[in-house]
Amino acid sequence: MRDAWLVAGKDLRIEFRSRVAVNQVIPFAAAVILLFGLALGPSRQVLAPASAGLFWVAVLLSSVLVTQRSFAVEASDGARDALRLSGLDPAGIFLGKALAVAVELLALEALLTFGVAVLYGARLTGALVLFAACVAATVGLAAVGIVYGAVASGLRVRETLLPLLFLPVAAPVLLGATKAWDEALKGTPSGGLGWLSLLAVFAVLYVAIGTVAFGPLLEES
């Protein structure tokens, strides 16, 4: 875990300095939920029931940007080679990069939650389920993102390839998180517990796969 903390600390420090998340990802996510609002019309009777799905689509699309950014910092000045040369445990690199992405996504989700409450009129009931779904889904998205980010990072077409690889695999997370949030927002949070379990299984599975696969992917891609 020493290596994971080291890499996560480095990635978060770089993000803090570059402010890409603040200046680009947050405005992008805000634009997505605004555009959904425009597309579906101003009626809160339409928007509020769709809040969960719209929120998670916005998170999913934003997570592509956050993941791309996580590997873009490794592409400059041969830093990716430095990562390979460093002798850091590849599993530690994976966990560190996933942790940094997860922290950024959780911060984004907190802001977007406020956004859907204000713009869509979503009533934030079942806070515990909402929070647990955010944590489990974010871990899953971050893990999948880092695995496919490593696959795409060595290729010239990485910007367009990453969404193609990432979005289908992340679909179960989108589904589970939307359902869990939907139940919570409807005021029946216990109905979301099954979906929460599914999200937790995906999170554990994706983290386990990433921990094992990241080393070979970093070497070969």
Partner: peptide, 16 residues
């Protein structure tokens, strides 16, 4: 890799 150091064409540094 742990015993070898490379000074290559690139600096292997993080700009930020």
């Amino acid at each position: 890799r742990r015993s070898v150091g490379l000074l290559g064409h690139q600096s292997f540094l993080y700009d930020e």
